Computed example of a mutant assay.
Amino acid sequence: MAFTIATWNINSVRLREGLVQRLMSEEAPDVLCLQECKSPVEKIPVEGFRALGYPHMVARGQKGYNGVAILSKLPMEEVAAHDFVDLGHARHVAGRLGNGVTIHNFYVPAGGDIPDRDQNVKFGQKLDYLTAMRDHFHAERPERAILVGDLNIAPREDDVWSHKQLLKIVSHTPVEVEHLGQTQEAGRWVDITRKDIPEGLLYSWWSYRAADWDAADKGRRLDHVWATPDIANAGHGSRVLRAARGWEQPSDHAPVFATFDL
């Protein structure tokens, strides 16, 4: 069975319901993972999504903040929802497809503006969250699994518009990159996007602050698709739908896609 998965920080699923429906209509991924839904689960506008062929959903939500949802054309059952570091945040949910593949959808804390845990509680929470993810995957080594989401870290030099200028900017600091690398190593996760697109600048996020985000092109690759080694070779066709960043009233993130032949 071949299926395509997309991950997108939608920055309010209710405010941007129309954009989600446009993606479903025009791109039709089999599985769509959303982050920063900013909605209680019961208020996610599922009726319109079901009408477009997405009858299955697993989700965790809260009013106004965070929130993750997996919308699927394929039958799916919820298998986990972890509150790492006991923050009380809706940042993870996992569903299992009928072929036995588990999909983890994560929204890692952004970490605030100051890359110092002594001066910035949010930065410490981000590092602790990644450490908890690492320990979890050490304890329960994943198999036949895909991990997607807004991980809020651009790990490689070519995942940011300027490696040198962003070394002290949250999302690309060495300590964050190290923590993300340890999490990836713990689950033996393969970065599918970079497996398919091994070289060159690649972004999935452009700040709202830029007057012309497209021309400035000061992006970062914050959104990721990983897979365990036992299915990584089945992953292909990775791409970033950059055009979605230019849709009307867009999210500051663009959807990232990959296809798996399983």
Rank of each mutant, 00 (worst) to 15 (best):
D150P: 03
G124Y: 11
Y203D: 06
I44Q: 08
I103V: 11
I114C: 07
H172D: 02
G181L: 08
A59E: 09
E157D: 15
G187C: 14
K43A: 15
H56I: 01
T7L: 07
L167W: 01
P45I: 10
K126I: 07
G48V: 12
L201S: 03
F137H: 14
L74K: 11
L15A: 12
Q125G: 02
Q21K: 15
G200M: 04
Q21E: 15
D212S: 12
L52F: 08
D86K: 15
V101M: 06
A215M: 07
D116S: 13
T4K: 13
L222M: 11
E17H: 14
M133F: 15
A244D: 10
V20L: 12
G98F: 06
Q125E: 15
V121L: 13
N99C: 15
W8C: 01
K195Q: 12
G181F: 07
G61N: 05
G237M: 10
A80W: 01
A258G: 11
I114M: 08
T4I: 06
P250R: 11
E42D: 15
A216R: 08
F123Y: 15
A2R: 09
R245V: 04
H163W: 15
A94C: 12
A258Y: 07
D191Q: 09
T193P: 08
V13A: 06
L97A: 13
F257C: 07
G219H: 03
P29D: 07
I70A: 08
Q119S: 11
K122G: 10
E77W: 00
E77L: 05
I169L: 01
G111A: 11
V93E: 06
D135V: 07
R14C: 07
L127H: 05
G124V: 12
N120E: 14
P109W: 03
I231F: 01
E199W: 10
P115V: 03
L71M: 13
P198L: 02
E36H: 05
R194C: 01
L52A: 13
H89L: 14
K195P: 02
R209L: 00
F260L: 09
D128I: 09
Y65L: 09
D214P: 00
A80Q: 08
S238F: 10
G237Y: 08
A94N: 06
D223C: 08
A94S: 15
E143G: 10
M1L: 09
P40S: 02
A258H: 05
V46W: 03
R220Y: 02
K126V: 07
A132R: 06
R141C: 02
R194E: 01
D159A: 05
A59W: 02
W161P: 00
T228C: 07
G235S: 14
E47Y: 04
A6F: 05
R96P: 13
H172N: 08
P229W: 01
L19S: 00
L167V: 04
T102D: 10
N233Y: 07
L71Q: 12
I197F: 01
H136Y: 15
T228W: 02
H179T: 01
D150S: 04
P142S: 07
G149K: 05
E36G: 02
A81Y: 01
I169W: 00
H179F: 14
L166F: 13
M57L: 14
D30R: 11
E26F: 06
T228Y: 04
L23E: 02
H138R: 14
V20E: 11
L167H: 04
C33W: 01
S207I: 03
N9E: 05
G149D: 05
G88D: 11
E140C: 11
A227Q: 03
F49S: 04
D128H: 08
Y54P: 11
A94M: 10
